[in-house]
Design a protein around this nucleic acid. Structure first.
Length: 404
RNA sequence: GGGUAGGUAGCGAAGCGGUCAAACGCAUCAGACUGUAAAUCUGACGGCUUAUGCCUUCGGAGGUUCGAAUCCUUCCCUACCCA
């Protein structure tokens, strides 16, 4: 049987890097019972298997879940395969193709593989929500929907926004908060975690648990992270995400491209550096002597270290300085062998995916973005003669080694 | 069920018979400047081996016309008002 740290010690850890705990005193009470009866809390986190690519924005809430695991509580990871199977048509024209059960299983697996870079395998329970949602009958659904009112559901701010923007909302979308709430009922969660954008759903979970005679879960929200563009929320589809599965080089490079204003936030939310380090960085940032670039180098190093290891982090840093500070050629670049003795440059660019179409290749050449062995090519009709290997560079970061 | 306003490139939005591959803004990409930052400036931004050329595109399908994103018919979709 596990012994738990004192309530105060636990609360100190739990509170860190969170936005809200609702209600805080209720959580303390739950912890008191847990310490007394040596019974771990069940801490729920839901995830969407239709988007199985985790990025460092996800790491914030996963780390919080990990904190609970380390304190001895049970992490309940819910894979939302049921909702993924239905397909969420939010946003017009983009009727997301519903996933098959098989696909949700595969995605659930890759999700878990990535999540285990942060979560511990101990104290972990993984559940698929089709297990209970798929079994509900129509009368079950009616009973569930009778527990909540229309105006309560419409309070959710993105519904409200879409209403006032005169955008469609499908009826079943209104049921998503309720189905998520049913997950809480099914797994009898004591605490549910989520980003601040999930606050509404998490609160519905409380209400529904109560309506089903359970003691309501406490909710903990964590901050959302802006993407590398510094404006939008980090998301793979917005192309501003640093993903768990990105190569060390990419993690480092993408980190270097974040705006200065986000440096501190990234340190706080995406690394596990102790508070004392964070304070130090905060001070350095205010010092006009500091070049923010150097802090980003440190940040990039930390991130690669977290998702790979120290050695890769070191390599990524060196590589970056080599390519971008000293403008040299990177170590590992893709190779491409040309077949013919004479071939148009635009064709090679298209074949090597350094340009999406011939037209784009021509555009790039005209704009002076293309060079061969360091010599800028400005003739769009340039023909390559297969005499010796060379390095083709397109734009700032695309390199291909062309072999004869 | 009745009425009104709509559906245009990744998004937003003009165009309402030829000069439309379609203004403008955002996003994106490239160049300059840099710290692969931000800001700024310049350029590109459907495809085609590059062409005062061809092909595909303005919700779908038909039609009128020498010519349609623009007019007509019909179907599909969305929001709003009334019931």
């Amino acid at each position: 049987m596990t012994t738990f740290p004192s309530v105060k010690e636990q609360m100190d850890i739990i509170r860190k890097r969170t936005v809200e705990i609702i209600p805080e005193d209720e959580l303390e009470k739950k912890l008191e019972v847990c310490v007394k009866e040596k019974k771990p809390l069940r801490v729920k986190l839901g995830c969407d298997p239709s988007r199985p690519d985790l990025h460092i924005g996800h790491s914030v809430v996963l780390q919080k879940l990990r904190d609970f695991q380390d304190l001895g509580h049970t992490a309940v990871l819910i894979i939302g395969d049921f909702t993924a199977m239905i397909g969420d048509p939010s946003g017009r024209n983009k009727t997301r193709p519903p996933l098959t059960l098989e696909e949700t299983r595969i995605n659930g697996k890759t999700y878990f593989e990535q999540a285990s870079k942060i979560l511990s395998e101990k104290n972990l329970e993984i559940r698929y929500n089709s297990e209970w949602l798929d079994k509900m009958t129509f009368s079950d659904v009616i009973r569930l929907t009778s527990k909540y009112t229309v105006s309560q559901i419409l309070e959710r701010d993105d519904f409200e926004k879409r209403m006032s923007a005169e955008q469609p909302i499908s009826l079943h979308e209104l049921l998503y908060p309720l189905s998520q709430a049913m997950d809480s009922v099914a797994v009898k969660s004591d605490v549910e975690l989520g980003g601040t954008d999930q606050k509404f759903n998490l609160l519905v979970g409380r209400a529904i648990q109560e309506a089903y005679g359970q003691s309501p879960q406490c909710i903990i929200t964590t901050e959302l992270l802006e993407g590398t563009d510094g404006v939008e929320k980090m998301s793979k589809s917005l192309n501003n995400a640093i993903c768990f599965n990105d190569s060390p080089k990419d993690i480092f490079g993408k980190t270097m491209s974040i705006p200065d204003t986000l440096i501190l936030k990234y340190f706080k939310l995406t690394t596990t550096l102790p508070d004392s380090e964070i304070t130090k960085i905060e001070k350095l940032l205010q010092d006009p002597e500091t070049n923010p670039r150097d802090l980003k180098v440190q940040l990039g190093y930390e991130l690669v270290k977290r998702y790979y290891d120290e050695q890769s982090a070191g390599f990524a840093r060196e590589e970056f300085e080599k390519v971008f500070s000293r403008k040299e050629i990177p170590e590992d670049i893709p190779e491409y062998t040309i077949q013919d003795s004479e071939i148009k440059l635009v064709t090679v660019m298209k074949d090597t995916n350094t340009a999406e179409s011939t037209s784009e290749a021509i555009r790039l050449i005209r704009q002076g973005a293309v060079s061969i062995d360091g010599h800028k090519i400005t003739d769009e009709k340039f023909v390559i003669k297969a005499e010796k290997d060379f390095i083709l560079k397109v734009g700032k970061r695309k390199f291909v080694k062309i072999k004869v």
